[in-house]
Design a protein around this nucleic acid. Structure first.
Lengths: 346, 346
DNA sequence: AGGTAAAATGTAATCCGTTACATTCGAATC
DNA sequence: GATTCGAATGTAACGGATTACATTTTACCT
């Protein structure tokens, strides 16, 4: 690989002139410029960006911590991040953490070892100590998950609580009162927020919150299927199931159909995320749609603003959502309705 | 950020001793080592890896060119790559090319500008010229797509042609003779290989290849849905549809069910990839399963071998596949069978 | 021509860690 | 105590591009 010195020798100028020709052409006389450009072409010179990054102290890399890239929703978020990062000259170092903290730590260390300038996380930890704050008192990171009040960094988030409330209200409006909830991964803040929204809606409708209607899940198809199996065994079967993501919902629907139930006539199922598969499920899934790519793009541009010192106080950005009603949710089955009425009368 | 000099001053030793303490502790006396380690802890020193990489000339980064990260199958491949790369101390720079050659070029340039040591591509181009070959005459890349005979680099591939033939044979064995094919993205070598396998099986079974049974697709749910619409309009409807990936198949099934067809009683549908959703489709999808993660892992370890000069001649590695028969494929409908027999008799 | 300011170019320091080579130290031996 | 050898440590060059500062060239004016 030719370096800048070879180009300089070839053109009969100093390395400084070559560098200037490439960085600030107007500061070099036209004929020198011409000669340098020829030398560049002749040698096939490509600047060693590792050297540039080392000297400048800017890696122009961003670490992104994602629980799993195989999740369709995250894939869309990443796609948006990629796009925004590329536009601004940043590259993304993707950490597929699979929940393993050793992997998270390895990648977090990249910021401290100057391999990356900042970090975007889709979880709720604080990987840095105060020594990492910049002149504005901000950490070189963006939280694309949940608000963490005690961390000085921008947050980009969906109002998960409100979204879950809206979905639950949708189910309530269809007459459902026994609404099961298939949760997301344990310990995930998303899960907690969505559970909170679910409870908000119930309490507003004066319906007793019943823990036996909560089922564990981990955002996979399989976990939805398994949770549905448990739901089928329940003493008094729920008439609707709200799943904290679409994969879970699709898995659950599969199980219900296997058991001979018809959706939504026998049981309503709702999801969250509006992944592409949701519209192609059978029946098409009622869900909450989120602008995933925009989510990613916003997170990246927020981080770059922090890195450039443009951000003075940590903003909190709320990404909008939409309730998308398809055909997996419907009115309470008549028999169940009578049952509920009877119960109420007692 | 403290640098090695600060640590050296703090410990009262030279920078060389600090470096040795960290790199080859046995070359430093125990009490010096102790003192240095204390200084490291006291200053919170983290080596600037950008400097290390710059000096060593090894970035320990790998560029991966993927058409789209939002494709479930690719996501699994990437996941495997991540894992293997992390184990060997490499990071992955993911390029979500979306087929845009400017993005491909930008990322390819990273190898030439020392930002990455090598590249893995899931397409069939040759981004490098001969000047990039190493001492063994190999390019710093791995082709994880299709064999390109004139490129000196390892290839990791599935025998797409054989897999497509196996699937077509499966459909033939069920009595189907009018088998539609929903293709993958135009120009993709994968698509060509799978088409070739489809034709192999047909010609072996002495069935006339009929171009009107070919339908365009691009690996998305939507394109499967649209292709199915075209299929429904066909003068003589095929009794089976082989889709070049699972998304397309799921999209097509949705359309067929909307049209009131029952799968597989009225029409058989087969996919390719065995993504998670395939088993949860309705009906569960017959498909070709591939060890996607292993695919990614193999590609990475092959590339690292090339980078370390361990590879002397470009190997071609064939990843195995499996036919997974589920419930989306079945025998030819009786009416159609009679129709076919009648046709044959004429 | 002489003088001056501006433009063009060159020189060399710098970023930080590694490592070849040089030097010093210490222990063992006679 | 002197000598020797290996272990421990230090010094300084190096990698490639950028850039502050120094120097040279050019252009223009009197």
């Amino acid at each position: 690989m030719p370096n800048i010195r070879e180009v300089a020798d070839h053109a009969g100028v100093s390395v400084a002139t070559v560098s200037r020709t490439l960085q600030q052409p107007q500061r070099v006389s036209p004929k020198t410029r011409q000669r340098v450009m020829e030398a560049v072409a002749a040698t096939g010179y490509k600047p060693n960006l590792m050297a540039v990054k080392f000297r400048s102290g800017k890696s122009h890399n961003i670490v992104v911590l994602v629980p799993t890239v195989a999740n369709v929703f995250f894939a869309r978020v990443i796609s948006g991040m990629q796009e925004a990062a590329a536009e601004q000259g940043y590259a993304i170092l993707l950490a597929n953490t699979m929940g393993r903290s050793d992997i998270e730590d390895d990648y977090t260390k990249m910021v401290q070892t100057a391999q990356a300038d900042g970090l975007i996380q889709l979880r709720a930890h604080n990987p840095f100590d105060v020594s990492m704050t910049n002149a504005n008192g901000l950490l070189p990171m963006v939280n694309a998950c949940e608000v963490l009040d005690n961390i000085p960094c921008p947050t980009v988030t969906l109002d998960n609580r409100a979204a879950a409330r809206v979905m639950t209200e949708h189910l309530l409006s269809l007459g459902h009162t026994r609404i099961a909830l298939i949760k997301g991964p344990q310990g995930s803040p998303l899960t907690r927020e969505r559970l909170a929204g679910y409870r908000d809606a119930l309490s507003e409708a004066n319906i007793q919150y019943d823990e036996s209607l909560l089922f564990p899940g981990d955002f996979t198809l399989r976990s939805g299927f398994d949770a549905a199996t448990s739901i089928l065994k329940a003493a008094q079967r729920p008439t609707a199931v709200f799943c904290e993501n679409d994969e879970t919902a699709i898995g659950a629907m599969q199980r219900f159909k296997q058991a001979g139930l018809s959706i939504p006539d026998d049981i309503s199922v709702a999801g969250f995320d509006d992944i592409d598969f949701a519209a192609y499920a059978d029946p098409p899934l009622t869900t909450i749609s989120q602008p995933a790519e925009e989510f990613g793009r916003t997170a990246v541009s927020q981080l770059i603003d922090v890195l450039n010192g443009k951000t003075r106080r940590a903003p909190k950005i709320i990404i909008p959502f939409d309730l998308v009603v398809r055909r997996s949710t419907g009115p309470v089955p008549v028999t169940q309705q009578q049952h509920a009425l009877k119960e109420k009368a007692e």
